[in-house]
Design a protein around this nucleic acid. Sequence first.
DNA 1: TGATTGCCTTGATCAGGATCAAATGAAAGG
DNA 2: CCTTTCATTTGATCCTGATCAAGGCAATCA
Lengths: 248, 248
Amino acid sequence: MSLNPLKLAPQDCGDCPIRHRAVCSRCDGPELARLEEMKYYRSFEAGQNVVWSGDRMDFVASVVSGIASMTQTMEDGRRQMVGLLLPSDFVGRPGRTVAPYDVTATTDLVMCCFRRKPFEDMMATTPHVAQRLLEMTLDELDAAREWMLLLGRKTAREKIASLLAILARRDTGLKAKAAKGPISFDLPLTREEMADYLGLTLETVSRQMNALKRDGVVELAERRRIIVPDFDRLAEETGDDADGGFLS
Amino acid sequence: MSLNPLKLAPQDCGDCPIRHRAVCSRCDGPELARLEEMKYYRSFEAGQNVVWSGDRMDFVASVVSGIASMTQTMEDGRRQMVGLLLPSDFVGRPGRTVAPYDVTATTDLVMCCFRRKPFEDMMATTPHVAQRLLEMTLDELDAAREWMLLLGRKTAREKIASLLAILARRDTGLKAKAAKGPISFDLPLTREEMADYLGLTLETVSRQMNALKRDGVVELAERRRIIVPDFDRLAEETGDDADGGFLS
DNA sequence: TGATTGCCTTGATCAGGATCAAATGAAAGG
DNA sequence: CCTTTCATTTGATCCTGATCAAGGCAATCA
């Protein structure tokens, strides 16, 4: 099975670190118990590789803490990030045995894994699980398509602003665009990783970050902390329309 | 429900034009009969809109003939195609009511539709269907990610070659990269549509198409017909590695 | 403490593709 | 047949972001 991220709603996870409740929020008792039985944890250090493209993958997993990225690399070394896995994101593809992308821990990382076979068996016998996974995959597909718009049509400045807005939303848990008062969050990516996300070079990322700083859109604090004085202002810089597709 | 394409394997479709056998290749009798009951056809003229972003969508569908495209548009008019729907592709998202993208018929188009509600009901009671849809969605996600690599890291020439290779493969049904002898197929897109697919301008598309022609990679025949004297040669121009991810 | 290393910034220059503009070609309609 | 319209080509110029090259800064380690 190869890797794909499927977002789990954090609120479904309760205090269970593996958050697998979200996989089947309507399952009680037996299914949850079965999930509980087959789970195990793996941790990785920052920079360590989780799987290589082409590897056999015998598990699906969800991110407990830390961040991983999925990247594709061309023969001559050009790299494009195609997935960014944050806590509560799901990874893995029921039914596939080979990973199509490299997955790398960009920070220290803990994942909660389920062996593929029993997980698939449960999927086959528990309709809710398959449906929930389908829903999560559709969300991921939407995200990929917004990403495509970013890669294909946005300017460097808009790309940076978009990425910061995405991270800010994920980190602070805000769904809507509007937000009063300053927001701050940790930037978990290096300039190079941001560049790979955005289809830019690291120099351009650096320049545009500082341009946004000069213009008062963000402040760059110690230890890669980002302060956003006015989220709406940042949102304006993304090039997205104000209401931004939060309809279901 | 909003739109997403899910590829159906044409070989699963038998002689049924709606190809819904592929939705549940393991279903016999009752499920197929239910699908048969709820289906209806819609046709569109080239250029006509199927749904607008934000519209309510009460059906899922598969493309019977013709081509449709999903596009996202920014306020200032910049456009990015995020999905290209060829015959046998599936469109629609069980569980969602609002389309997130514009869907437009780029040629005359016939779609076979299923009302969303009964389709969802069948999904809920027929595990195979949900699993099959999940599989198709995962394929679509893979395609989106390859598209992301194209948008973020490929040169204009590589982008054009990649698109032509994709269309050639779909049109001629070849799975592998290798192909002896010349291939020809119809280019169903205008220069502008190609540009929207590739994140380029139509002028750049035109120039690079003619560059590929000058270099003998393709021939541009009458009525938008494309002749590829040597598919391997075209494949080399895409920037993808030779084996190209045809592992499952 | 100094050296190394990884990450980031900054500068100078270049080039790939965008933009603006005009001409050509082909199909459709009166 | 001429006109209109739309798709495409081609040319000239511009500009954004890439590339090449140094230098700075902070953390880590000997």
